[in-house]
Design a protein around this nucleic acid. Structure first.
Lengths: 251, 251
DNA sequence: CGGAAAATTGACTTACATCAAACTCAGTGG
DNA sequence: CCACTGAGTTTGATGTAAGTCAATTTTCCG
């Protein structure tokens, strides 16, 4: 993808010369890193671990979660192929990251990332952009959990998944949901039974069709968006477009 | 606070020479900026506004919120004196920021902040640290909204407020809550009645005492923490200590 | 003081949780 | 290939925490 012969070092850290000029992306940086494979259920890192690396997911899906002292599990989010993991933390990771299905990822040490950041000043805005996107997603999640009823939450989840897993916006939209119903419940602050009932209701209403446990076809996105409270017919789209086009920080 | 005669410019942006050496802090940068005053109810910026400035709050308290299409209000957080506002967004602000009580703040243009960032590379880690803290707070909020019952939420809110408004940890802890019960409800994803009932119950249990609408005295923090699910007897403390000591990004 | 906004309390309703029982489906091995 | 298995899911019956509606009561500000 990039030519790899090295250039005279500035003294700190060598990085692919092509990156210095034009196509500097976090994915690009990770592309030269070793690839790891994880089986379903394996953990990339635990909450509280020293935050030593950032990761780029090339394949699969991860759940990010915390376990409360009494055993409840809060799923903070999911990470899909093409997304990054581990950017928005400081000393230690604040969630456990676990493979939902088999995962391939590339790891980049944060020390190296930091060094690169000092060499290539274009890198900082990219990092900022990514973290801001994560923040936007977190705020969205706060609104969903704080203000929306069960049906709205599920509708929102489906729409959001449709955008992220980036089906080509063809109708009807086919969404792959590799996680279990329990995962969805723990993510939406509901019980597994409520998630099931809402999905069944959506089926009865003709809003969705399921194929097996992990495939949902969204018919009538319009109505689903209406149910989701229109919070993000625009906004979710925006967030995801921004991620994909690598928008940069202020100007 | 800082001497203000200008130095030979590097061509971009002048900034106080004292900052270039040692005590570089975001607060320091803001200290040289003009001060604004807002009355209660006045708005610093609206959701969707061009994100042109960051702010340092020297006095008062702000609520950050979004209004959903159907009129529901989601309060995403509060900003107290000594904290910064407007860091974690990109093109536009993602919440409206409104004064709960009279506020004094200093504004720093993001253009200037960016320029400074390119001159003083120590600034980037500070920014990262701040944004990471905001992210940590958002994740905490997600756990509270997604997994905790009403009493746990209120207990958590009280403890959290106690840490942030940085009373000197003397017992009993006196907490000033300038916001209304409705604000608290919209922040915790509850109704105003539920917030009242829980506070009344805590009073009956002898966990708290109130003085007027906006002062709560926490007796028996231990029990309150227990109620809050111990989520953050450590963690909330950590977050707030980190903010105060200006921890920096990875190393 | 007086009045209006905010807070509190009570009576009742409801959305979601809980408990419990089938059902589905993807593997596995006979 | 098909029955067997067990985890995962779905559905139903019932319980309950929190919401809604409706009075008071308190607070505080002119």
């Amino acid at each position: 993808m990039y030519d790899s012969h090295s250039i005279p070092s500035t003294g700190r850290t060598a990085f692919p010369p092509s990156l210095a000029r034009e196509g500097l992306t976090l994915e690009g940086l990770c592309a030269t890193q070793p690839t790891d494979k994880l089986a379903a259920g394996e953990v990339v890192f635990w909450e509280g671990d020293e935050a030593s690396h950032v990761f780029y997911i090339t394949e699969g899906c991860l759940r990010l979660y915390r376990i409360l002292p009494d055993g409840r599990r809060a799923i903070m989010g999911f990470v899909f192929a093409g997304e990054m993991l581990g950017l928005s933390c400081q000393r230690t990771y604040r969630c456990t990251a676990e493979a939902v299905i088999p995962v391939r990822l590339r790891r980049l040490s944060r020390a190296r990332l930091k060094a690169l950041g000092e060499t290539a000043e274009q890198l900082q805005p990219l990092l900022m952009a990514r973290i801001s996107e994560e923040m936007a997603a977190a705020q969205q999640h706060i609104v969903v959990l704080g203000q929306m009823a069960a049906e709205e939450r599920v509708a929102h989840f489906l729409i959001s998944a449709a955008y992220r897993t980036g089906t080509d916006q063809k109708k009807p939209v086919v969404v792959e949901l590799p996680m279990t119903r329990q995962d969805i419940a723990d993510y939406l602050g509901l019980t597994i039974e409520t998630v099931c009932r809402v999905l069944s209701k959506f089926k009865r209403m003709g809003l969705i069709v399921t194929q097996g446990r992990h495939t949902v076809i969204l018919r009538r996105m319009i109505d689903l968006r209406e149910l989701a409270g229109k919070i993000d017919s625009d906004e979710t789209a925006e967030i995801n477009v921004a991620v994909k086009h690598l928008a940069v920080w202020p100007n």
